[in-house]
């Protein structure tokens, strides 16, 4: 089945504030979309709406295909060595995480709580790739990464899309990718 992600007339309310409204988007195999906008516009909320972790205030989201999410929390056990923490997800997903490529191969014995912000982000990306899901939802994937790391993420997303996957990237930083679509949340502010 072709992976597909469609949102129709989405509106998001957090507390008493309507963050955005009348937002529609459609992504199919091979496409990537950057959601841009200043802080507090609802980028993360849009990602969580697309993931089905929040209920939309109005509108609907349709997904076909497995979803994978990276946000500001790596979802790894702090007290475990990195290798064991990733192995837990590996056992659930039955995929292999590319440790070497993400620069994590030398860190597998280090407990997650000692990792730096950038290393945690790389670890979360390793979990993401191991999940082998067609739809990637990335919330600020470049936070804490050095220039080499940024280039690496851009390359990984590019390969993922060429391989038939799709990606939604919520980021206020520039993201370089051929054929990247852009959606400015400020256009949908309520």
């Amino acid at each position: 089945m072709e992976p597909r992600l469609t949102a129709t007339d989405l509106a998001c309310r957090r507390g008493e504030r309507l963050l955005f409204a009348r937002l529609s988007l459609e992504l199919s195999s091979g496409q990537a979309l950057q959601v841009a906008g200043p802080n507090g516009m609802g980028k993360s909320s849009l990602i969580r709406l697309l993931a089905g972790l929040l209920r939309p205030f109005a509108g609907s989201v349709e997904r076909s295909g497995q979803l994978a999410l990276v946000d500001e929390r790596p979802a790894l056990d702090e007290h475990q060595p990195l290798g064991a923490a990733l192995a837990f997800w590996g056992a659930l997903d039955k995929g292999a995480a590319p440790l070497e490529r993400l620069g994590l191969a030398t860190l597998i014995d280090v407990p997650v709580r000692y990792l730096s912000t950038g290393q945690r982000k790389r670890a979360a990306l390793a979990r993401l790739i191991g999940q082998d899901a067609p739809i990637w939802l990335l919330d600020e994937p470049l936070n804490g990464l050095d220039t080499h790391g940024v280039a690496l993420v851009e390359a990984l997303v590019g390969e993922h899309c060429v391989g038939g996957g799709m990606a939604v990237i919520a980021s206020h930083q520039p993201f370089t990718l051929p054929g990247l679509q852009r959606l400015d949340l400020a256009d949908y502010a309520a």
Binding site: L53, A68, L69, D71, R73, A75, E78, W89
Partner: peptide, 14 residues
């Protein structure tokens, strides 16, 4: 919950 484990499980249909 704080680490986002439950969100990840939810995405995997658990």
């Amino acid at each position: 919950v704080e680490r986002g484990m439950f969100d990840q499980w939810a995405l995997r249909g658990l």
